[in-house]
Structure formats: structure tokens, C-alpha cells
Amino acid sequence: MGMLDVNGTSVEVDEEGYLEDLSEWTEEIATAMAAAEDVDLSEEHWDIINFLREYYEEYQIAPAVRVLTKAVGKRLGKAKGNSKYLYSLFPYGPGKQACKYAGLPKPTGCV
């Protein structure tokens, strides 16, 4: 359990930095989480983050990396539907890192 400071207000995160209550998520929280890991969120990052939030809203789970890769390829084009592209955006692992910024729990099936 820990606290993340976002523009003067703090939100609860678990020991790995994932948001405790995903309903508290804001874009500012995502930006702050990224900044804490020296990541400046680009439009490409946001495409993935927004996709993850929509996926969670629809299916109530964070998708496994394999599922994310396939879905990104379908939606954003084949050039982006591979793990090399996703790792270039999220070097700590597209599942773990992007899901964290998106305010989601760690992906089910993340082994």
C-alpha cells in the first residue's frame, strides 16, 4: 500500500504502484505515474492506454499481452500490432506498465 501524489492530492496505490480504486483514475494520474518512471506520455502511449480502458470497461479484465498485441494490430494497423512496437512504448512490459497507467489491475494471465 502506498500513496501517489498527483498535483497536490494523493491517491492510493498497491505495493507495485497499481491504482487501488480504478474509478479514481484520471489522465493526470496516468501522467503522474509515467513521470515517476521517467516516461513522457505521447499520443502513441495514449492510444494504448485508452484502448486498455475501453477493453476493461467492456470485458471487466485487463487483456493478456498476446490479446493486446492482436487487438492493437487490428485497430491501429499491423505495424503497431507487434510486441516490439509495444515494448518500445512500454519497456517494462506493455501489459504491466500500460495497465498501471490505465488504472487497471495487473493483467489476468500475466505470468
Partner: peptide, 14 residues
């Protein structure tokens, strides 16, 4: 309780 029925619809993705 959390309604997890929507998650069955994701099985096709897996």
C-alpha cells in the same frame, strides 16, 4: 458483487 459475465465474451480474444 462484481458481474464477471462480460469476461466470458473475451474468451474469443484468447
Amino acid at each position: 458483487m462484481k458481474n464477471f459475465s462480460a469476461t466470458y465474451k473475451a474468451l474469443g480474444d484468447y
